[in-house]
Simulated assay, not measured.
Amino acid sequence: MYQRFIAVGRLGRDPEITSTAGGNRMASFSLATSEVAKGEERAEWHRVVVWDEKLVDVVAKRARKGTLVALEGQVRTRRWNGKDGRENHSTEVVLDRFTSRFQILSGAKERDDFAAVNQPVFDNRFAFDELPF
């Protein structure tokens, strides 16, 4: 069995870039999606964790609070025991190396402000330049 999560939404806060004890970098941020039902807009918030090193670079350089993005990943639930002994859990959208996509649609700026605003960012792994037609 296989599941995918695909969404278009806006970052609810600036991404946090951290490193694990093993030296792997990761990015995390909240993503707001919305839908209109019966004339009312309803927002959903999703916690997104990015483990793909190339995607972490894109997020670090171009994503900010309010940036419109499209992403594809997997929904995973982590469980752990807290210091108080209680079992905790967190459901996240995970973008890993092999099964994920991430694209900035608008509102992005380089950290040093050299890039033009609203330029789409494509992950080269998904480029179609090699197609024969």
Rank of each mutant, 00 (worst) to 15 (best):
S19W: 02
P120F: 07
T91V: 11
E92R: 05
K109C: 04
D84T: 10
W80G: 08
R78C: 03
V48W: 00
A27S: 08
S100P: 02
V117Q: 12
D57A: 13
S106C: 10
E87V: 14
D112V: 07
F122T: 05
R101N: 06
R76P: 00
D57R: 08
N81H: 06
S30F: 04
Y2A: 13
F128L: 13
A60N: 15
V36H: 04
G66N: 05
F126Q: 05
K38G: 06
R42N: 13
G12Y: 04
H89D: 09
R125T: 10
R97Y: 01
T91W: 06
T18D: 07
K109V: 09
H46N: 08
E110M: 06
S90L: 15
L31I: 07
A116K: 13
E44D: 14
N124K: 13
E35F: 10
D123Y: 02
D113R: 14
S28T: 15
I17D: 03
W45Q: 08
I6D: 06
T77A: 07
V75R: 07
R64G: 04
A32P: 01
A32Y: 09
Q103N: 05
F128K: 13
P15I: 07
R13E: 15
D57G: 09
N118Q: 08
A43W: 01
Q119T: 14
G85E: 04
E87M: 12
E92S: 08
D84V: 11
G9L: 03
E53V: 03
P15T: 10
G73P: 01
A116D: 12
F29R: 02
A21R: 12
D123F: 03
R125Y: 06
G107K: 07
L131T: 12
L68D: 00
E130Q: 15
L71G: 00
V50L: 00
E35H: 11
W80K: 10
V94W: 01
N118I: 10
T18M: 10
I17M: 06
A108S: 15
D14S: 11
R79C: 01
V94Y: 00
N88Q: 15
A116N: 09
V93P: 00
G22T: 14
V59S: 00
A108E: 03
R13L: 08
